[in-house]
């Protein structure tokens, strides 16, 4: 269970990215977070695994406090939280398998991973993760030789290799074309359903949010302005979250708007 209790994040320079956020996510939920850029979506996810330190309040992941945790404690918390990124964040000049093995870093002694002496069971784990996203064929290919969609699948496999309890996805499809976007979202949905991994996804395409989400969270200027079942969401809800009317740019495909 994830619990945000009155969490605020103020960046150096005084920008307030989150203001007094309260939020509880139960195990196995699939939560989609929407909001304009700058509304605090990325900060919310990064505060959860401590990449961005919360300046106020308390964040607990399965009863473990994230705010103010020591470096070692943070690494332990992060080892159970997978994260995938808008820009994939792969190391281009090494193999797909090495990229996925990075998900095992917290489980392998540093001297072994540093020299690339990964234990056989961790290699096996990485291979299984690649199989789950259907890209094991490319295990020994250099990451830079893959297409965008394939790279994001490697990103998902890397997170899966962590054996995570929680999966954070920060705009996972913003850099992808519509068809690939749906495939990646389907992957995330399947992983959530098959493995019961709690999933939080930032999206800026509202139609994708409606299509894949179960629970919707709306952020506006760092504050929680909507939290509810996706079934209750109407165009007015989105307008309320965005503070403006919905345009075509907020949708992945214009056709879905009409159905």
């Amino acid at each position: 269970m994830i619990r945000f209790d009155n969490v605020s994040v103020t960046y150096r320079g005084g920008v307030k990215a989150l203001r007094g956020l309260d939020l509880t996510v139960e195990e196995g939920e699939f939560v989609v977070i929407v909001g304009l850029s700058g509304a605090g979506k990325s900060t919310l996810l990064r505060a959860l695994n401590g990449l961005v330190p919360a300046t106020e309040g308390s964040i607990t992941v399965n009863e473990t406090e994230v705010v103010g945790a020591s470096a070692a404690k943070l690494r332990e918390i992060r080892s159970k939280i997978g994260m995938i990124f808008q820009t994939f964040n792969l190391v281009h000049r090494t193999t797909v398998l090495n990229n996925v093995l990075m998900g095992r870093l917290s489980a392998v002694p540093a001297w072994r991973s540093t020299f690339g002496l990964w234990p056989e069971k961790d290699r096996e784990k990485a291979m299984q993760s690649l199989e789950r996203v259907g890209i094991v064929e490319k295990a020994y290919v250099r990451a830079s030789d893959l297409s965008g969609g394939q790279q994001q699948r490697v990103g998902i496999a890397r997170a899966l290799a962590q054996d995570p309890l929680i999966m954070l996805a920060d705009e996972p499809v913003a850099a992808l074309d519509p068809i690939t976007s749906r495939q990646v979202m389907t992957d995330l949905q399947r992983i959530n359903e098959d493995l019961g991994i709690t999933t939080l996804v930032n999206l800026h395409f509202l139609d994708l949010a409606r299509e894949y989400g179960k629970r919707l969270i709306g952020l506006r200027e760092g504050e929680l302005v909507f939290d509810g079942d996706i079934a209750d969401v109407t165009d007015e809800t989105f307008q309320q979250i965005y503070g403006r009317s919905i345009t075509e740019e907020d949708l992945l495909t214009t056709e879905t708007r009409n159905d």
Partner: peptide
């Protein structure tokens, strides 16, 4: 910075961030 952030989010130590996040990028 992306790969470094990725290693960090996996719970990797500083040495792992350098070895896997930075080194492959800068070695050539």
């Amino acid at each position: 910075d992306g790969p470094v952030e990725a290693v960090e989010s996996c719970g990797g130590a500083w040495i792992s961030e350098m070895r896997w996040g930075v080194l492959p990028q800068v070695m050539p």
